[in-house]
Nucleic acid binder design. Structure first.
Length: 530
RNA sequence: GCUCCCGUCGUCCAGCGGCCUAGGACGCCGCCCUCUCAAGGCGGUAACGAGGGUUCAAAUCCCUUCGGGAGUACCA
């Protein structure tokens, strides 16, 4: 028995990590951390035509952003590398050759087209297209290329114990012999994946449910590879590190259910099937993503829902992983995010808001603004950064002052873009709707004149003093304070929705406030007249 | 078609034979608070897919059925 659990996250680098794969990575990582194990990040790029360098980099970047660290992998290194499958071809071929010599592989000379035609025939006759050696045509001619298939048992059953699903049994007669070596000599996923699991000492295979059906042949292969030291001989032959001597093969499996959209269909763009980085642009905290994804298909015994990384590690176990598919609920994610933002230290929050103000993450288009992270939104065309990069001392001070005003009214970091302009730009644009609804009301211009007068005469420029100046205006003008606050708010912030008025005014230079109120008076008169 | 997996509020999770007139969270609705929007507080809405068993007793065990999903590649 191996003393240390070893798990691997092994994505194919052909695209971007989405919530499903991140959740798989997370569960692997949690299991490793919860059991003092080793987390391996392996890249399965056996299909050169689909793998890209860009994709591989973005996957590593995503992990770094999420704070999931890997003990062994392409970036981390480790004793059982290389961790890119494409760099292990020699091993895979050596294994394939030895398997062939052992007589467990056989040639299938049919072309892809011939096989396809055969499958169609079978299906037309309501028969499962199962390839078995006994029904595979013999050699047609020496010069034909062939795939090498693994000969699986013709009958009997195999039972695999899955940590989340319990015992699952398959009948060998229903299992098709998998192609291990393509006709062009390349090895396939079934071989490479199994070989690397063994060579790297993986003890638990945790992956998506879509790979459950592949488990029988994988277990069968594990046995073949380890039985007579075949893998060890191959390892030695190509000069790769030997395995732990006391270790046999992966003994545990955990197949995670799929993540679906709120419509119960396969994850769509609307429901988060985008690169995980897109969540960063949309203003989600990495710790929110980790927390929420951990709760998709799992929950701690005590029912807590807000858990940080350490708490997740302490509570995690496959025994509490759900078997049914989970719907990705952006609303709940967003609510979680809002809570975490509120929990952030104010200085910390200020730092985290900078990328949303300096142009690193420009705003999304309004039509997708209230929806899930989505590529279709794209950046807003004419948006100008509100602070320089890096921010000046003055900008930083303003931002720091703004944080307490906006912290409790944000669910996502990018929402700062809604509140910030009034505090950073010289030329304020008044929202037409607010002008009409608020400044157009009777008496708005009078309120603004009175507010201007009082604020100009003020000695202290503090929220308390500003409140002391503005509140009495309600009685003076014989109206409710709301009728006073709203016109001033629109004049000063450009919108009928803003952070608290007195604190907002305090944060701005007095002259700027007075100028804005003054400029709004004719606007109010016009709007009122119209 | 065949093989396998799954089935509790709209959604996530709890429940593992009696504590369930089914609990928590998000959402939604209402109220309170209030300078707007939030935040916060309080209350409410809403589910065991169906049918048979087993049992004194079933959301919990068994069977059937219906529904959903995955796989069925010289892709991983």
């Amino acid at each position: 028995m191996p003393s240390t659990p070893r798990v691997r996250f092994a994505p194919a680098p052909s695209g971007w990590l989405h919530v499903g794969s991140v959740r798989t990575a997370l569960f692997n990582w949690l299991h490793a951390r919860a059991n003092d194990g080793v987390a391996i990040f392996r890249i399965e790029d056996t299909d050169a035509s689909r793998a890209t360098e860009e994709s591989m980099d973005s996957m590593h970047d995503a992990m770094a952003w999420l704070g999931l660290d890997w003990d062994e992998g392409v970036r981390a290194g480790g004793a059982y590398g290389p961790y890119r499958q494409s760099e292990r071809k020699e091993l895979h071929r050596a294994v394939a050759r030895r398997l062939e010599e052992a007589g467990v592989l056989y040639r299938d000379e049919r072309t892809a087209e011939e096989l396809e035609a055969w499958r169609n025939e079978r299906r037309a006759a309501d028969l499962a297209p199962i390839v078995k050696r006994s029904t595979t045509p013999g050699p047609a001619g020496d010069d034909r290329t062939a795939t090498l298939r693994l000969q699986l048992p013709e009958e009997g059953t195999i039972t695999v114990t899955d940590l989340v699903r319990g015992d699952v049994t398959w009948d060998w007669s229903h299992e098709s012999d998998p192609v291990l070596v393509r006709s062009n000599g390349d090895v396939t996923y079934p071989l490479a994946n199994s070989v690397d699991d063994i060579a790297q000492g993986v003890t638990l295979v945790c992956r998506g449910e879509d790979l459950l059906s592949v488990t029988p042949r994988q277990v069968f292969l594990y046995d073949l590879l380890t039985r007579d030291g075949l893998i060890d001989d191959a390892l030695a032959e190509v000069g790769l590190p030997a395995r732990e001597p006391d270790w046999t093969r992966p003994t545990e499996f955990a197949h995670l259910s799929m993540i679906v959209g709120m419509d119960r269909k396969k994850l769509s763009k609307r429901h988060g099937s985008v690169s995980i980085q897109e969540f960063a642009r949309k203003g989600f905290l990495p710790e929110t993503i980790v927390n929420y994804l951990a709760l998709l298909g799992w929950g701690p015994e005590d029912g807590r829902e807000r858990l940080d990384r350490d708490e997740l590690v302490a509570a995690f176990g496959f025994d509490r992983v759900s078997r049914s598919a989970a719907a990705f609920d952006t609303d709940k994610l967003t609510a979680f995010n809002g809570e975490r933002i509120r929990d952030l230290d104010e200085d910390e929050l200020a730092d985290r808001l900078v990328p949303y103000l300096d142009g690193t993450y420009p705003p999304s288009n309004p039509d997708t603004e209230d929806d899930a992270p989505d590529h279709e939104g794209g950046p807003v065309a004419d948006w100008e950064p509100l602070v320089s990069s890096p921010p000046s001392a003055e900008e930083r001070a303003t931002l720091r002052g703004l944080v307490p005003l906006v912290q409790e009214r944000m669910q996502r970091l990018d929402e700062v873009q809604r509140y910030a302009p009034a505090f950073f730009v010289d030329e304020l644009t008044l929202e037409p709707a607010s002008v009409q609804k608020v400044l157009g009301k009777a008496g708005a211009a009078d309120v603004l004149r009175a507010a201007h007068r009082e604020l100009q005469a003020l000695d202290d420029w503090t929220a308390e003093a500003i409140e002391g100046a503005l509140r009495p205006l309600a009685d003076e003008l014989g109206i409710g304070f709301g009728k006073v606050a709203q016109p001033v708010r629109v004049a000063v912030t450009g919108s009928q929705v803003s952070p608290p008025l007195f604190e907002s005014i305090e944060l701005m230079p007095r002259q700027r406030v007075l100028d804005r109120i003054e400029a709004a008076i004719p606007v109010a008169e016009d709007a009122g007249a119209g």
